[in-house]
C-alpha cells in the first residue's frame, strides 16, 4: 500500500526542487501514529531527491535524510525558521540507523544522490550534514574523495541541528550520544507487541484445549471452567516480556534481556498464582511457561534497544534459549500431568 499523505508536496520535480514545510500537518501526525501502532507499516516513503525548507540559496546548508517518511518528518519539523536544503537518499524506506546498518544508507547511496541531484550546481560551498547515526553506513572521508563534498556528522537527534549549526558545526558530547528514555521505549511497544502475535495465539489455543484434559478423556465443561488461569498466565508472561520489561528496562538488576524478562515473568506469575489460588502443580507448570514467554519476549526487545551488541545478544542466547525451551516443555508436561492427576 502506498500512502498519499501530502504526496503532492513530497515529489521532487526534475528541474525544480519541491518546497516542504517545517510544520507537520495532521495527516503527517496521523500517518506517524499509524506507523507506531503497526497499521500500514509498509512503504511509508518519501521520494528520494532534493527538497527545500524555507528559501535556501547557494550558501545554505544541506541536510541529508533517509527516505523513510518518519525520519524525514522528524528532521523537517525541527527546522523552524532555517533555510536549508534536504537531500533525501534512497534508503529503501528504512530509517537512518537501520538502513545504515543494512548498507542502504551508505557511502554509495549518498554519492549517488549527490550526483543525481547535481548538488554541486545548486550550492557554492562543499559541505553536507549527515545524521550521525548514518556513520555505520557512510564513510565521510570516502564521500569527500568521490564527490569533493565535506561530509560532516551532525547530531544524533534532529532537534539539535539548529544549535549544532549555530555553534559552527560543533556538537556537544550530549548531542553525540544515543539515549533510550522511557518515552522512546514506550513508542516501540505496540509494534513489538504484535510481532509474535501468532505464537501467542497458538499457545492460547493450545492451553485452552489442554485445560479440558482429564483422566477420563476430554471434558468440555472442565475446559470452560479452568482455562482462565493458564490463559491469563500466558498473556501475563507476554506482557511482562514486551511491555513491562521495556518500560522498566534500566531498573531491573540484570544486564541480559532474557534475565530481565524472566524476573518480570516470575513476578507476574506469582501474582497470578496468588489471585487464582491454584494447586501447586498447576502453579509451577504455568509459572515455568510464563517465565519462558516473558524471557523470550524480552530477549526479542534487544533488536529494538539502542545499546545491545551482536556479540552480547549471541552470548545471552546461548544459555537463555535452552532454558526457555526447557521451561516451556517441562511446564507443558507438568500442566498435562496436573490435568490427568
Amino acid at each position: 500500500m502506498t500512502t498519499n499523505f501530502n504526496s503532492q508536496a513530497l515529489k521532487p520535480l526534475s528541474l525544480n526542487v519541491t518546497s516542504v514545510s517545517s510544520r507537520l500537518t495532521w495527516a503527517d501526525r496521523i500517518g506517524a501514529l499509524k506507523m507506531r501502532i503497526g497499521v500500514g507499516r509498509n512503504n511509508y516513503r518519501v521520494k528520494p531527491g532534493l527538497y527545500k525548507v524555507g528559501n535556501p540559496d547557494s550558501q545554505s546548508d544541506v541536510l541529508v535524510s533517509a527516505n523513510y517518511k518518519l525520519s524525514f518528518d522528524v528532521l523537517r519539523s525541527n527546522l523552524d525558521s532555517l533555510n536549508v536544503w534536504i537531500l533525501v537518499v534512497d534508503t529503501k524506506g528504512v530509517n537512518v540507523w537501520c538502513s545504515a546498518a543494512k548498507g542502504n544508507f551508505s557511502t554509495d547511496s549518498v554519492v549517488k544522490s549527490l550526483k543525481e541531484t547535481s548538488l554541486e550546481h545548486r550550492v557554492q560551498h562543499r559541505r553536507i550534514i549527515l545524521p550521525q547515526l548514518s556513520a555505520s553506513g557512510v564513510a565521510a572521508h570516502k564521500v569527500k574523495e568521490q564527490t569533493g563534498f565535506n561530509a560532516l556528522f551532525g547530531p544524533v537527534e534532529a532537534r539539535d541541528i539548529k544549535p549544532y549549526i549555530e555553534a559552527g558545526y560543533k556538537a556537544t558530547p550530549a548531542m553525540r550520544k544515543v539515549t533510550f528514555p522511557m518515552k522512546e521505549r514506550a513508542k516501540l511497544i505496540p509494534v513489538d507487541f504484535l510481532y509474535e502475535k501468532y505464537k501467542l495465539l497458538i499457545l492460547i489455543g493450545l492451553f485452552f484445549f489442554l485445560s479440558g484434559l482429564d483422566r477420563t478423556g476430554f471434558l468440555f465443561g472442565k475446559m470452560m471452567d479452568s482455562h482462565l488461569f493458564p490463559l491469563i498466565t500466558i498473556l501475563g508472561g507476554y506482557i511482562a516480556g514486551i511491555v513491562i520489561t521495556p518500560l522498566f528496562l534500566p531498573w531491573i538488576p540484570f544486564r541480559a534481556f532474557a534475565l530481565k524478562g524472566a524476573f518480570w515473568g516470575l513476578s507476574i506469575t506469582l501474582v497470578i498464582n496468588r489471585l487464582f489460588k491454584v494447586p501447586i502443580l498447576d502453579g509451577v507448570s504455568m509459572g515455568l511457561i510464563g517465565i519462558s514467554i516473558a524471557s523470550f519476549m524480552a530477549m526479542n526487545f534487544t533488536g529494538s534497544s539502542t545499546y545491545t551488541s551482536l556479540s552480547g545478544v549471541r552470548k545471552e542466547m546461548k544459555w537463555a534459549v535452552p532454558f526457555q525451551i526447557a521451561f516451556i516443555v517441562v511446564g507443558t508436561i507438568l500442566f498435562i500431568l496436573s490435568k490427568l492427576a
Partner: peptide, 20 residues
Amino acid sequence: NNCRTGAITVKTGTGCAVAI
C-alpha cells in the same frame, strides 16, 4: 567505517535476537 587508517576493527552486526 570512518577510520581512514584502519586503526579500529570491530565485528559489526545488529544486536537483535530475532535476527539471530
